[in-house]
Amino acid sequence: MEGKSSPHARWVPGSGRDNDEVRAGREEARIAFELGNAVRERRQALGWSQAELARRAGMTQPALSRLEAGGPTPTIGVLDRIAHALGARLTVQFTDAV
C-alpha cells in the first residue's frame, strides 16, 4: 500500500500546515486562554457567578463560559462591557516579544 495515506500516519514537519500558521494558532489560543483566565479570576475575586457577570455585561452565561474557557476571542466592545461590569478599565498593552 505504498503511497497511500493512513489515518495512523506520523506527522512529519513541513508535510502539513506551514509552521508559521501553527505558531500563529498557538499564540492566538494562548492569548484567548490568558484573557479568559483574567476575566474568571476577577469575577471570582468579586464573588460573582458567571450568570451574575453575564447579566451585568449584557451577555449570556454560556457566552461568558466560552470566553473564560479560552474560546473565540471577543470583540473590543464585548471586552469593554465586561471590564465595565467588573469595575475595571480595559487597557491594551504591547510588550517586547520574548
Rank of each mutant, 00 (worst) to 15 (best):
T60S: 15
E52R: 11
F94S: 11
L79N: 03
G58V: 09
E27Q: 14
E28F: 04
R66W: 03
R43K: 10
A85C: 09
R17L: 15
L86S: 07
A57E: 02
S5I: 12
G70V: 08
W48V: 06
A51W: 03
I82N: 00
V92T: 11
R26Y: 08
A88D: 11
Q50L: 11
D20R: 14
M1V: 09
V12K: 13
G47K: 13
G14P: 04
D18Q: 12
L46Q: 14
R10H: 09
P72R: 12
P62D: 06
K4A: 14
S65W: 03
V92M: 15
E34Q: 14
A85S: 09
R40P: 00
R17K: 13
P13F: 05
R30C: 07
L64H: 04
T91W: 02
A88C: 15
I31A: 13
L90F: 07
E52D: 14
A54W: 01
L35I: 09
T60A: 13
I31Q: 09
S49A: 11
Q61I: 04
G87K: 07
D96H: 12
A45L: 12
G16W: 04
R30E: 15
I82K: 02
L90D: 10
M59P: 02
R43A: 05
A54S: 07
N37I: 04
S15L: 09
R42E: 09
A38R: 13
Q93M: 12
I76P: 00
A45Y: 03
A54K: 05
M59R: 13
V78F: 02
V22W: 05
V78C: 08
V22P: 00
R43P: 01
G36W: 00
A97D: 11
S65A: 15
G77S: 11
L67G: 00
A57Q: 04
G71P: 01
R30T: 11
W11T: 08
V39E: 00
G25L: 11
H8Q: 11
G36S: 10
P62Y: 02
P74T: 07
G47C: 10
S5E: 12
E28P: 01
F33L: 14
F33T: 08
A51K: 12
W11A: 14
D18W: 03
D80A: 15
G25V: 02
P74F: 06
F33Y: 10
A32H: 04
S65V: 05
P72D: 14
T91R: 13
R42M: 10
V92P: 03
R56C: 08
G25R: 11
V39Y: 00
R81K: 15
A9I: 05
A63Q: 13
G70K: 08
R81W: 04
V92Y: 09
L35A: 04
G58T: 06
H8L: 13
F94I: 15
Q61H: 06
R56E: 12
E2F: 04
L64G: 01
D18A: 15
R56T: 06
R55G: 13
V39L: 07
E28I: 07
G77A: 13
R42Q: 11
S15W: 01
G71N: 06
A57K: 06
S49L: 12
E52C: 01
E27P: 00
G58M: 10
G25F: 06
T95W: 04
V39R: 00
E34Y: 04
V12P: 01
R89F: 05
E21Y: 04
V92G: 09
W11C: 09
G16K: 10
R42N: 05
